[in-house]
Each structure stands twice: as C-alpha cells, then as structure tokens.
C-alpha cells in the first residue's frame, strides 16, 4: 500500500507517526507562531473600512464568549492567551471535524483495504456494509 514495506505493522505505524507530526505542526502554528502573525486588518476588513462597507456592522452575538477574538478570557499574558486559544481551536476543529468525517466515512473495508479499494474495486464491498451513516 505504501512505498516502504510489505509488512502491515510498519506501514500503519508510519501513518500514525505522520498524523502525529501533522497535528504537532498545527499545534505549533496555532499555539506559538500565531503570536507573530500580522495584526493589521485583513483584506476584507481593510476594504470594508476604507470604502465604508462596515458602517452597519454589528457586534458578534457571541463577542463575550470565553475565547472571543482568539484569546482566553482572564489570561492577561497575550502570548499565553492567544496560544491557548489557538490550541483550543485546533483541538475543537479536530474533534468536531474528525468526528464528522469518522461518521460519514465509508464502512466495511479494513483500514488496509480502504485506499486500495477506493481506486476502483471498492463498490462491490460497499453495499454489504451497514447504511446507518
């Protein structure tokens, strides 16, 4: 299935390691690097302010939420506050997104079979699986 080995175990482990690395990169970006992001208004915000599109902008209905504006309420250190918010966001998106994708996914194939089957021979197996998605 992958280029590396023929045995199942090492392939599986390397996928896990890749997933772990991918998650780590996201956590570092959101938790640490985000502090150094530009705080200038973004394209839309700038154009809106320049042209006056935003004159009827309303406050966000959840602006008093504990993580509003990418900070953690009650944490004064801005580096820590923003970093924590970033980590919370990565976790929340992973949980909600990953949960959704796990529910939606095609069942019936073993993980080893999944991708190979997706190349064309899978549909034969698919109807046999439960349609409870």
């Amino acid at each position: 299935m992958t280029t590396k080995t023929t045995a199942g175990r090492p392939v599986k482990r390397s996928t896990k390691r890749f997933f772990a690395a991918f998650l780590l990169v996201s956590l570092v970006l959101a938790g640490i690097v985000s502090y150094y992001a530009s705080s200038s208004p973004d394209g839309l915000e700038k154009v809106a302010a320049d042209k006056g599109i935003d004159s009827k902008e309303k406050d966000h209905s959840l602006k008093d939420s504990p993580f509003s504006d990418y900070g953690v309420k009650g944490v004064d250190d801005s580096r820590l506050s923003g970093g924590l918010a970033g980590v919370v966001g990565v976790g929340a998106v992973l949980l909600v997104g990953g949960g959704l994708f796990w529910v939606v996914r095609r069942r019936g194939g073993t993980p080893e079979h999944g991708r190979d089957g997706a190349q064309g021979s899978a549909p034969a197996r698919e109807p046999a699986g439960s349609e409870d998605a």
């Binding site: 990169v25 998106v93 949960g99 994708f101």
Partner: peptide
Amino acid sequence: ELDDRTAPLAGLTAAFVFA
C-alpha cells in the same frame, strides 16, 4: 472520499487549515 485512514487525515487537515 473518506475511509478509516482518510477520515482522521481529513480531521487533521481541518485543524491545519484552522491553525
């Protein structure tokens, strides 16, 4: 598009886009 292996990858991709 999603199976046992790509579903977690998709969750991680969403997290990466957020970050």
